[in-house]
Simulated scan of single mutants.
Amino acid sequence: MRLLLVEDDPSMQTALQRTLRNRGMEVQVCGDGPTALARWKAAPPDVVMLDLTLPGMDGLLVLEKARRSGLRTPVLILTARGTVGDRIMGLNSGADDYLPKPFDLDELEARLRALHRRHGAGGASAPEPAMGGLRCDRESGAIHWNDEVMELAPRETALLQALLARPGHAVPKERLFELVFPGEADVQYEAIEVVVYRLRKKLAHTGVRLVTLRGLGYLLKAGE
């Protein structure tokens, strides 16, 4: 999913970009209204996350101009303006959803994925990451084996999500560490090997193997 985050607070920009990238999304950021509108027109993303209080051009005006120019990208408004009146104004200006600050990151992700599904090109959504009988539910992030949810720890789920996103391809150990232990500077690098060991045991009955490629990282292989 390609996202355009329009937010003028640098710390919020950095935090959201890092978090959503760790959850498998591509995030482009900008901090003012005119730039946001120009980027939106030049390369329409899958979803726009739009703050309302922006330098250069208010977020509502950005949204109104985008809609008038024919841009139909779904928009999730993120703002500290949380009154009912503000929400109505945003929705009337063409927003698809509204999430007041502060917000829960899991809820944000769920809303973004819901918007992406509902507004997918031609009503079709991209196939879910899968290999063999394993698949990752795009909405919840849960891992299914033959249509039953697997009982995995959060770090095991994060690791398997990353590997399923690139089936048959090695994912570097460094990248996996960033996804499984985001922002945890006190965790030792070797901790990823513990998560790999535990996940490998839980995959033993599935026919999908978690393979170590020395110097390259880890990958999933089906069969054999």
Results as ranks from 00 to 15, higher is better:
residue 54 L to Y: 07
residue 59 G to E: 10
residue 88 I to P: 06
residue 39 R to S: 01
residue 123 G to Q: 02
residue 2 R to D: 06
residue 68 R to A: 15
residue 82 G to M: 08
residue 34 P to F: 03
residue 86 D to L: 06
residue 159 L to D: 11
residue 210 L to H: 04
residue 208 V to P: 01
residue 185 A to M: 09
residue 81 R to H: 14
residue 24 G to V: 12
residue 2 R to K: 12
residue 91 L to G: 08
residue 39 R to F: 00
residue 65 K to S: 10
residue 83 T to K: 07
residue 128 E to V: 07
residue 183 G to Q: 02
residue 83 T to A: 05
residue 125 S to R: 01
residue 128 E to S: 13
residue 133 G to I: 00
residue 157 T to F: 01
residue 123 G to S: 02
residue 92 N to H: 13
residue 190 E to P: 03
residue 20 L to C: 01
residue 197 Y to M: 03
residue 121 A to N: 10
residue 158 A to F: 00
residue 138 R to D: 03
residue 111 R to K: 06
residue 155 R to G: 13
residue 32 D to V: 00
residue 222 A to R: 10
residue 74 P to I: 08
residue 114 A to P: 00
residue 31 G to P: 07
residue 154 P to F: 02
residue 102 P to R: 04
residue 115 L to T: 04
residue 51 D to A: 07
residue 144 H to I: 00
residue 46 D to Y: 04
residue 172 P to A: 12
residue 115 L to F: 12
residue 92 N to L: 07
residue 19 T to E: 12
residue 132 G to I: 11
residue 208 V to K: 00
residue 159 L to G: 07
residue 70 G to A: 02
residue 139 E to A: 15
residue 100 P to L: 06
residue 44 P to T: 06
residue 200 R to L: 01
residue 145 W to E: 11
residue 124 A to N: 05
residue 71 L to S: 10
residue 219 L to W: 09
residue 133 G to P: 06
residue 206 T to W: 07
residue 145 W to D: 08
residue 120 G to P: 08
residue 42 A to W: 01
residue 102 P to I: 10
residue 132 G to L: 09
residue 212 T to L: 15
residue 191 A to T: 03
residue 54 L to F: 05
residue 8 D to F: 02
residue 81 R to C: 03
residue 162 A to K: 03
residue 94 G to N: 07
residue 105 L to E: 12
residue 74 P to E: 12
residue 21 R to W: 05
residue 69 S to G: 10
residue 169 H to I: 14
residue 65 K to R: 15
residue 204 A to I: 08
residue 154 P to N: 04
residue 63 L to E: 14
residue 161 Q to M: 06
residue 5 L to R: 06
residue 176 L to Y: 11
residue 178 E to T: 10
residue 151 E to V: 13
residue 135 R to E: 10
residue 87 R to I: 00
residue 26 E to C: 09
residue 44 P to R: 07
residue 156 E to Y: 01
residue 45 P to Q: 04
residue 111 R to T: 04
residue 16 L to Y: 10
residue 178 E to M: 03
residue 54 L to G: 12
residue 123 G to W: 00
residue 11 S to G: 03
residue 135 R to K: 09
residue 31 G to W: 05
residue 117 R to Q: 15
residue 30 C to G: 05
residue 111 R to Y: 06
residue 209 R to D: 09
residue 113 R to C: 09
residue 85 G to T: 13
residue 144 H to A: 04
residue 71 L to D: 15
residue 12 M to G: 10
residue 36 A to F: 05
residue 157 T to R: 12
residue 143 I to P: 02
residue 120 G to Q: 02
residue 44 P to A: 03
residue 192 I to G: 01
residue 74 P to C: 06
residue 65 K to D: 14
residue 85 G to E: 15
residue 8 D to G: 04
residue 168 G to Q: 04
residue 69 S to R: 12
residue 113 R to G: 08
residue 195 V to Q: 09
residue 62 V to D: 09
residue 72 R to A: 09
residue 154 P to Y: 03
residue 153 A to W: 03
residue 148 E to H: 08
residue 31 G to R: 11
residue 201 K to W: 09
residue 57 M to Y: 09
residue 152 L to F: 02
residue 214 R to H: 14
residue 124 A to E: 05
residue 24 G to L: 11
residue 83 T to M: 02
residue 56 G to D: 13
residue 45 P to S: 03
residue 14 T to W: 14
residue 186 D to N: 10
residue 78 L to P: 03
residue 68 R to C: 00
residue 223 G to Y: 08
residue 172 P to D: 08
